[in-house]
Simulated assay, not measured.
Amino acid sequence: MARPFKCRCICAKPKTTCFVPENADETGMVVIGYDEYEVIRLLDYAALTQEQCAEKMNVSRPTVTRMYDSARQKMADALVNGKTIRIEGGDVIVCAAMKPQCTHEKHCCHKAKNNQD
């Protein structure tokens, strides 16, 4: 019997959801899910470890690794082949407010929202 699917928790949906190559000629599109975007944001932008990322997203560390590998493969395909990157979809839960473990987090989306108010 398969293990039940856990919803992935993300801080917020990205503001920019589409990247189009300058010389786009309808060569295709890759779709990166919100969960894959969040993994890239947490690991590469916020420089968290995979364990920290897994804790924030409420998933296992091997799940983070699979999502990260998938997102990197899709981004490489888009860059090498001149494809559009669209960020959308996935079975995710968006945080309604800052979590206690994000208090000292430099790149928390909720801190950015509060600074704009």
Results as ranks from 00 to 15, higher is better:
Met1Gln: 11
Ala2Lys: 03
Arg3Asp: 08
Phe5Asn: 11
Lys6Gln: 06
Lys6Asn: 05
Lys6Phe: 01
Arg8Ala: 00
Arg8Thr: 03
Cys9Leu: 15
Ile10Asn: 02
Ala12Leu: 12
Ala12Asn: 15
Lys13Gly: 06
Lys13Pro: 09
Lys13Trp: 06
Lys13Arg: 15
Pro14Ile: 02
Pro14Ala: 04
Lys15Leu: 07
Lys15Thr: 10
Glu26Ile: 01
Thr27Val: 08
Thr27His: 10
Thr27Gly: 14
Gly28Thr: 01
Val30Glu: 05
Val30Phe: 02
Val31Gln: 01
Val31Leu: 00
Ile32Val: 15
Tyr34Lys: 01
Tyr34Ile: 00
Asp35Val: 04
Glu36Leu: 05
Glu36Val: 03
Tyr37Thr: 03
Tyr37Met: 05
Glu38Arg: 11
Val39His: 07
Val39Arg: 07
Val39Asp: 06
Val39Leu: 08
Ile40Tyr: 07
Ile40Glu: 05
Arg41Gly: 02
Leu42Arg: 06
Leu42Trp: 00
Leu42Met: 03
Leu43Cys: 10
Leu43Pro: 07
Tyr45Val: 12
Ala46Met: 07
Ala47Thr: 14
Leu48Asp: 13
Gln50Lys: 14
Glu51Ala: 14
Glu51Lys: 15
Gln52Asn: 09
Gln52Met: 06
Cys53Met: 02
Ala54Lys: 04
Glu55Arg: 15
Lys56Ala: 10
Met57Gln: 08
Asn58Gln: 15
Asn58Ile: 15
Asn58Trp: 13
Val59Arg: 05
Val59Cys: 09
Val59Gln: 05
Ser60Gly: 13
Ser60Val: 06
Arg61Thr: 06
Arg61Ile: 03
Thr63Ser: 13
Thr63Gln: 14
Val64Asn: 09
Thr65Asp: 07
Thr65Ser: 14
Arg66Trp: 03
Met67Lys: 12
Met67Arg: 13
Tyr68Pro: 05
Tyr68Val: 05
Tyr68Arg: 13
Asp69Trp: 07
Ser70Val: 01
Ser70Gln: 06
Ala71Tyr: 07
Ala71Thr: 07
Arg72His: 10
Gln73Cys: 10
Gln73Met: 09
Gln73Phe: 07
Lys74Pro: 08
Met75Gln: 08
Met75Phe: 08
Ala76Ile: 09
Asp77Phe: 04
Asp77Leu: 08
Ala78Phe: 00
Leu79Ile: 03
Leu79Pro: 02
Leu79Lys: 11
Leu79Asn: 05
Val80His: 12
Asn81Ile: 00
Asn81Ala: 03
Asn81Trp: 03
Asn81Phe: 04
Gly82Glu: 01
Gly82Pro: 00
Lys83Thr: 00
Ile85Thr: 08
Arg86Ile: 05
Ile87Asp: 02
Glu88Ile: 04
Gly89Arg: 12
Gly90Thr: 01
Gly90Ala: 01
Gly90Ile: 01
Asp91Gly: 07
Val92Leu: 01
Val92Trp: 00
Ile93Gly: 11
Cys95Arg: 15
Cys95Trp: 06
Ala96Val: 08
Ala97Tyr: 11
Met98Lys: 11
Pro100Trp: 08
Gln101Trp: 11
Cys102Gly: 03
His104Asp: 12
Glu105Leu: 13
Glu105Trp: 12
Glu105Val: 10
Glu105His: 13
Lys106Trp: 09
His107Thr: 10
Cys108Pro: 12
Cys108Lys: 10
Cys109Met: 13
Cys109Val: 09
Cys109Glu: 14
His110Cys: 04
His110Glu: 04
Lys111His: 14
Lys113Phe: 10
Gln116Thr: 09
Asp117Thr: 15
Asp117Met: 15
Asp117Gly: 14
